[in-house]
């Protein structure tokens, strides 16, 4: 599980730094990494949760909750993408799904194992 945390820490840290750099620069550094200061800070926060888990006695809690937040943001950005598409239809503007794709959506599958563990514990442990 620590390996999972370590991998997720590196991936989310890289994504956060690239988004943050793009946000400060004013333009996206790479495709899928929007220039988004706050989005970058959110990814850095998620990476910090995984990092904290690497050294913590209850490391599994950080792995599972970090995965849950990553999943939450992945779903949120998918909702934002769908909303932008719907909005474009309503106001009659052009819209390309590629413009709204971002790295957090691609990372969604990586968040599933940790979140599944958390859901399992929700069922097995007292509230």
């Amino acid at each position: 599980m620590r390996w999972n945390s370590a991998i997720l820490f590196i991936v989310t840290l890289a994504a956060g730094l690239i988004e943050l750099a793009g946000g400060l620069k004013g333009e996206a550094v790479f495709q899928l990494f929007p220039s988004d200061v706050f989005g970058g800070l959110v990814m850095l926060t998620i990476s910090a949760v995984f990092l904290r888990g690497l050294t913590h006695r209850e490391h599994y809690a950080f792995y599972e909750f970090g995965s849950l937040i990553l999943l939450t943001f992945s779903i949120l950005y998918i909702l934002v993408m769908l909303a932008n598409g719907l909005d474009a239809v309503i106001v009659g503007e052009e819209w390309s799904i590629v413009d709204d794709l971002r790295i957090e959506m691609i990372l969604l599958p990586l968040a599933i194992p940790g979140t599944s563990r958390l859901i399992k514990e929700r069922r097995e442990l007292p509230p």
Partner: peptide
């Protein structure tokens, strides 16, 4: 408890 697991993270002094 399940709440203990979540609270370990969300009330952590660093994160």
């Amino acid at each position: 408890t399940f709440s203990d697991i979540i609270d370990t993270v969300v009330t952590d002094k660093y994160v």
